[in-house]
Nucleic acid binder design. Structure first.
Lengths: 156, 156
DNA sequence: CCATGATCGACAACCAGGTTTACTATATGG
DNA sequence: CCATATAGTAAACCTGGTTGTCGATCATGG
């Protein structure tokens, strides 16, 4: 009977591949005038999206309190990635939208992820990459868009 | 021509699978009298290992400063997971070793990771799981034991 | 044998991101 | 019209990390 690999190796390889893709994105972003963005910011930008959002909604998407979301928004506003405008329909709310600079991050990220995927397909073959993706979907079913990763790792 | 899936889906699925495995480990740990341990602690325990280590060495393995490693060690010592003893051969050094409680964490984690792997093999078939692992090794080559994940995500 | 430099661990001050608690301002529904 | 719920903000605090500094202890070259 053949010994299977130790069980911790597969999770580490999953994480290593994830990390490789994210590192590629952030290397591109850093080279394109967006230094200082961390992997967690990718989740935040995705959570804001092209539609914009509010502090409460952003907090819910990221799995943090609205106060934490508010701090994050303030920081991104400071750096010019988002802008806030009063909601004409509800004076309590403040609409948060990505600026052109913020949209550039979203756009570049998407293109780099596509580039990484194409490189991977070329490396192991598109069929095997599709099989890999299908198997992953079977092993960890459900919505892949869980944006509450910040906080999951070190969070309370 | 068939549209490939958006490139960000695969990384998210990689992360989701990693997260599922780690969550299984920490659910088991929490049920076994180790509540409050976060995913990042798994990396720390692995970095300390059965051999023990020192603050400087731990910092190097985790990719953080020795001061941060020292704080982490102090916190784990407080909770009874590690103990420090003076090194008889070098009075500057303090050997850090896992206590029985700490070794229990390491042991349980390894067994749960094995259990997860077995469950995954049963679900998609051992051949496909082996293929998945081999493909991942091809895509993100190199040492899978990169323990500097804490800090990578939100770090400086 | 000892002076100099490197290394180990600790302390202090600070920062980033998160939480809890508390508060104001605005909507909304009975 | 008022009671209750919701959006945003603020303050105090926690954790994990950083830089800078320091004393204590090796290690090495005169």
């Amino acid at each position: 009977m053949v010994e299977p690999p130790p069980g911790h190796e597969l999770p580490l390889r999953l994480f290593a591949a994830f990390r490789a893709a994210v590192d590629a994105v952030h290397a591109d972003l850093a080279a394109a005038g967006h230094p200082g963005l961390r992997p967690m910011h990718g989740f935040i930008f995705q959570a804001i999206g092209t539609q914009g959002t509010t502090a409460v909604e952003l907090g819910a998407r990221l799995g943090v309190t609205k106060q934490a979301a508010g701090k994050t928004i303030a920081a991104l506003e400071q750096q010019g990635y988002v802008e806030r405008a009063p909601d004409p329909a509800d004076a309590r709310r403040k609409a948060v939208r990505l600026t052109a600079k913020g949209l550039d991050v979203l756009d570049r990220s998407a293109r780099t992820f596509d580039r990484v995927r194409a490189a991977w397909a070329a490396q192991i073959g598109p069929e095997r990459l599709d099989a890999l993706e299908a198997d992953l979907a079977a092993l960890a079913p459900g919505e892949p868009f869980r944006l509450d990763a910040p906080g999951w790792f070190s969070g309370s």
